[in-house]
């Protein structure tokens, strides 16, 4: 199978600081790939090297089978939407969107047709002759998207494009973006630190940690079956509980379980309730065990300070922070 994009052992340093450390990633044609990672983990840096505005210290970037590692950005034909949209303030909306077309020397008529087309798809046709500094956040995001979409590039890179919007607008924009990508069949690489976005948008999610892809797969897989303890505690609204616990035959291993993977009962592990939070799906009890905080979900409310017992319905076993076995699935 041929990939749309292959990243092979990318390396990038800033001074003595390694940001990308032999990072490899393959993206399929038409895929919506979300790159997820905490702030400062090099997500933007990754996109910037792919698009060519940041030089690599090692590795290869292959687009549609062609090695583009040494090509300047304007010859790669990859579109990118920057974190802050980077609209040209000296041009109006129309000119912003038309800019990439002008650069490839399209005729006036073609430009006019394409700009109007994409503007109506993204519902910004009314604002075409407005100054970009007067746009709302949502409009700016659409203009940036329109400018990326208008010229039919091989690949779309989006750097947290929704992070500057307020919650409601962000929710709508997310749905639209997904719909648009599916209808047009484009390949998207979408960077975010927001798990909800990853969950609702991605075909596959690549989790970035220490400069490499720590795990890749559909969001549900990452949630159910985190391959490392780090992914376990990073993914999910509540981190996966990790406790020391020897399983027969595996000394010095750790046990990981989600808050919902427990049964409350009369025997089992005992804990003291330190906090009890009500949620739609039940009550989240927070406590500490051996100095580590843990969270479990139960169906009954408990008083703060009271004790309770629970047993594990399901759990994963980790040795050296790597998944070795799953129980109770």
């Amino acid at each position: 199978m041929t990939y749309k994009l292959q990243l092979q052992e990318l390396e990038k340093k800033f001074g003595s600081k390694t940001v990308l450390n032999k990072l490899s990633l393959d993206v399929e044609e038409g895929e919506f790939m979300v790159v997820l990672g905490p702030s400062g983990m090099g997500k933007s840096t990754l996109l910037r090297t792919v698009v060519g505005i940041e030089n690599l210290d090692g590795g290869k970037i292959i687009v549609e089978g062609e090695d583009v590692t040494r090509l300047p950005p304007h010859k790669r034909n990859i579109a990118m939407v920057f974190q802050n949209y980077a609209l040209y303030p000296n041009m109006n909306v129309y000119k912003n969107i038309a800019f990439p077309l002008k650069m490839i020397g399209e005729s006036k008529d073609v430009i006019d047709k394409k700009v109007n087309e994409i503007a109506s798809i993204l519902k910004i046709a009314d604002a075409l002759h407005q100054n970009v500094t007067t746009l709302s956040g949502g409009q700016k995001q659409r203009v940036a998207l329109a400018r990326a979409l208008v010229r039919n590039p091989k690949l779309f890179l989006l750097d947290e494009p929704l992070s500057n919007l307020d919650a409601r607008v962000r929710y709508d924009a997310r749905q639209e973006l997904r719909k648009l990508q599916q209808e047009l069949g484009h390949t998207f690489i979408y960077v975010t630190h927001d798990q909800t976005e990853a969950q609702s948008l991605a075909d596959r999610v690549a989790v970035l940690h220490n400069g490499t892809v720590e795990q890749i797969g559909p969001y549900d897989d990452l949630y159910e079956k985190p391959e490392t303890t780090w992914v376990g505690s990073f993914i999910g609204e509540y981190p996966m509980n990790i406790i020391d616990g020897s399983v027969i035959g595996r000394e010095g291993s750790q046990i990981g379980f989600r808050p919902s993977w427990v049964n409350e009962g009369d025997d089992g592990i005992q804990l003291t309730v330190q906090l009890c939070q009500a949620a739609e799906s039940g009550f989240f009890i927070m406590s500490t065990m051996d100095g580590k905080s843990i969270t479990i979900r139960v169906q009954k409310r408990h008083k703060i300070g009271s004790t309770m017992k629970f047993s594990l319905r399901r759990y994963n076993v980790y040795t050296d922070n790597r998944l070795v076995e799953e129980f109770g699935k």
Binding site: G52, I53, H74, F82, A86, N90, M103, I104
Partner: peptide, 20 residues
Amino acid sequence: DLENQARVDGANLPTTMYRI
């Protein structure tokens, strides 16, 4: 990022200078 955006949008350096 304005300059970077222009490069990504397909402008070479002289064009980026002159237009942006």
